[in-house]
Simulated scan of single mutants.
Amino acid sequence: MKAIFLISSLLFLTVTASGQHHEDLKPDTAVNNITINDYKSTELVLGKNSWSKQFEQAGSLPRIEVVNKTGTQILRLFFHYGGSKNSVDEFEMINIDSAYKIPKQVVHLKDGQFITSNKIYLGITKEDLVKKLGNSYKSSINGNVERLVYTADSKSNFVRRYNQHGYYIRCVFKDDILIKYSFGFESL
């Protein structure tokens, strides 16, 4: 009887321990001290009048575009309809190429690079990004471009804490180097 109890206890511990190795998404919540759903952080970094820099383009959500010091990267801050003024709902970091036209109301930051709360930045390798965010992504590959998508639904404690519908992180790699990174709450 003791042997059966011991074996069943060991099986329970083994199953429990293996269940604890499941990697959950570690959500990103900020870029260069601008925090998701926090208008105060946006105003602290961009100024109280940052809302005057917002615009809509081609059916997109209202946004503010921020350019880094060297003019090589853009940070797009998206705002959902019905949300609070200066309260960012989605972030997108991309490298600027020759096709990009800088809007007249762009904000220039003195920062050389955009870095998220999870220490993700453009130019990081796929391997390093996955070490930081985990393996719970979906992937699609087209030639030398790979896209990773991480999601959390309304059952996630993180999503519930913000009273949102869902959360995502989308990564685009070219030759295993991050060239576009976006994250935030899904708009309804």
Rank of each mutant, 00 (worst) to 15 (best):
D89F: 02
Y162P: 03
I102D: 07
K126V: 02
V130I: 13
G47W: 00
S41Q: 00
I120D: 07
F79I: 02
K119Y: 03
N86W: 01
Y121W: 03
S41P: 01
E146L: 08
D153E: 06
L122T: 01
S136R: 12
V159N: 07
T29Q: 14
N49L: 10
I102T: 15
G143V: 09
P62S: 04
P62G: 02
L133S: 10
P62E: 03
S8I: 05
G83F: 01
K126W: 00
K2H: 10
T125R: 04
E23K: 15
K101W: 00
D38L: 01
K131P: 06
G19R: 08
G134R: 10
M1K: 11
T16K: 14
F78K: 03
V67N: 12
R161L: 10
V106G: 07
I7M: 03
N144Y: 05
Q113E: 10
T16A: 15
L133H: 03
L122W: 02
K126G: 15
F158R: 12
F114S: 05
L10M: 08
Q105G: 13
V107S: 11
S50A: 15
P62K: 04
T72K: 13
L61W: 12
S117M: 04
S139C: 13
S140Y: 04
C171F: 09
R147E: 13
K101C: 08
S87F: 00
H21E: 10
V88L: 00
G19P: 08
V106N: 11
A58P: 00
N163M: 12
I34Y: 01
L178D: 01
